[in-house]
Amino acid sequence: MSTYSLSDGIASGAPRLSRAPVLASWLRESGVGVLAGVAWIAFGLSCLWWEDLGDWSRTHSLGIAAFIVAAIALFGTVGADYLGSAGKALRQRAPWLVALGAFLTLWEVATAKFAWLPLPFFPPPQSIIEVYTDDLPKLLDSVFASVKLQLGGYLIGATVGFLTGVSIGWSRAVGYWVHPVLRFIGPLPATAWLPIAFFTFPSSWSASTFLIALATGFPVTVLTWSGVASVSNAYYDVARTLGAKPSFLVLKVAIPAALPHVFVGLFMGLGSSFAVLVVAEMIGVKAGLGWYLQWAQGWAAYANMYAALIVMALLCSGAITLLFAIRDRLLVWQKGTVKW
């Protein structure tokens, strides 16, 4: 952009100014949104223009849906000023809509239309949609089973880990006995217990719950413990001079002070428990998304695998988002001091 001096504008630029900048600023604000519309129209066209190479029943609906998204993007962009926060949100996400539309177009063309990527290993988008519509009950059952198993194991692991961590951090005697055990067993990946767990526990469900709890418990214990151990003595001194009893020191000083560490542990535990969940479902449990993946592979139903993977990704990121939301609520006091 060239430098612009005031006198130029008054002398000669005035008539030129009136149109071009308005258009330029409109393009700057809405150009990406229009591009998003174009990308999704391209996706819709790519669905409908050529014949499918295979036999997929949702191609037509997918094309229509793409046009609907395109229409929403276009109208949303044009009318963004009248849509308030929704329009603003759309404008903010427009670059992602462009990328997504372009990716889907490429995917559609590369699989269903010209098979640049070998079928059936790379199913087109419409076959994944087909899984969601036609195999929904089974998929939902799997989601439900996975969530139940994960939630039970995670809650048990997190609770036991938290209590153990606080006890080791607080009591020297507990630390003396538990610490070496933790040192010895903790670093072992929970999946290493799988063969033993599956024949020592009465059911594969209880065995998996145990393994998930184990995978969650270790990081939660270690981080809670280090959190409690690193609480400044000054806090205890203050509380003691104000008449605090030991229970007050634990509940109202040690635990709240250690909470940021505890959440790091909960976060790490969540990650490692996902890994155990999927492995346990693939090997022993006869339900859940891991099992669904395994089952789909057995039938060479690749679209089902991708569909299940996408659901799994949504669930895992949803769980982490939920954990972060809880953390932000409990640790409002950290706002502006610590970020991780």
Binding site: A234, P256, A257, Q334
Partner: peptide, 14 residues
């Protein structure tokens, strides 16, 4: 007998 320390040592979570 209450102490006021050199650092305020307020509890940051309260």
């Amino acid at each position: 007998r209450v102490v006021v320390f050199q650092d305020p040592t307020l509890f940051p979570w309260r």
